[in-house]
């Protein structure tokens, strides 16, 4: 329970006092900060609506002349709200936050790049370095290589889309609760998020070359 410094009402911690609407300087997890249920299948419309609604109510401009304690609470609550929103609106950062929230570390026991993915990374990087060499002479071969890289890019996007689909399946399994072993779901989540990270970093290099 926390006490509102404005009206002294004691209440469950939230970013806004349920009685007088003053901002509260409280430590909340990102789901609680946004007034969302602690589930992975976030409803984006509610996420957006709560973010804008809460943001308006605790906005520092509204408390510019308030006592310093309340002004400070408004700044802190706004900072927390913004971080929560940025983290939860993206499924990958939401998944990473989920691990953090449950004391699971992404990198722990997780240094092995899945062999097929490692092979893909080295293959595409090899193509990239060949293409860079060819482009110094702006030859026909370089044009060919560029075309090949474009189709490669589409291919990688397909893989990335598949991984996102796996991620959402994992989210759904978490939210369904029961049934499957949660530890197994955490391990699976770590694997999916790692694959996405390796693939995204490869896609970034490809996009740099296509630009």
């Amino acid at each position: 329970m926390v006490q509102c410094p404005s009206c002294a009402r004691s209440q469950q911690p939230r970013l806004v006092c349920s009685q007088c609407g003053a901002p509260l300087a409280v430590d909340l997890d990102f789901f609680a900060a946004l007034d969302l249920p602690r589930v992975l299948q976030t409803d984006n419309a509610t996420l957006e609506a709560n973010y804008y609604d809460l943001g308006r109510r605790i906005h520092p401009d509204r408390f510019a002349t308030a006592p310093s304690e309340i002004r400070d609470a408004s700044l802190r609550a706004t900072a927390l709200l913004t971080r929560a929103y940025r983290t939860l609106r993206d499924p990958v950062s939401r998944g990473l936050y989920w691990l953090e929230l449950h004391d699971h570390k992404l990198a722990e026991d997780n240094k092995q790049v899945p062999p097929d993915l490692a092979e893909l990374v080295f293959e595409v990087q090899e193509e990239l370095s060949e293409l860079r060499a060819l482009r110094q002479h702006s030859s026909d071969e370089a044009r060919q290589g560029l075309l090949k890289l474009r189709s490669r890019r589409a291919n990688l996007q397909g893989l990335l889309d598949e991984l996102y689909a796996e991620l959402f399946q994992n989210f759904a399994a978490f939210d369904a609760g029961g049934g499957r072993d949660r530890e197994q779901l955490f391990a699976e989540l770590k694997t999916i998020l790692s694959k996405i990270a390796y693939l995204k970093s490869l896609v970034r290099d490809v996009d740099n070359e296509l630009r």
């Binding site: 990198a107 240094k111 092995q112 790049v113 990374v121 080295f122 990270a197 970093s201 490869l202």
Partner: peptide, 13 residues
């Protein structure tokens, strides 16, 4: 040895 840093997507051989 092929290892990776899943936090940033770096891959090292």
């Amino acid at each position: 040895g092929v290892v990776g840093a899943p936090e940033c997507g770096d891959v090292m051989k």
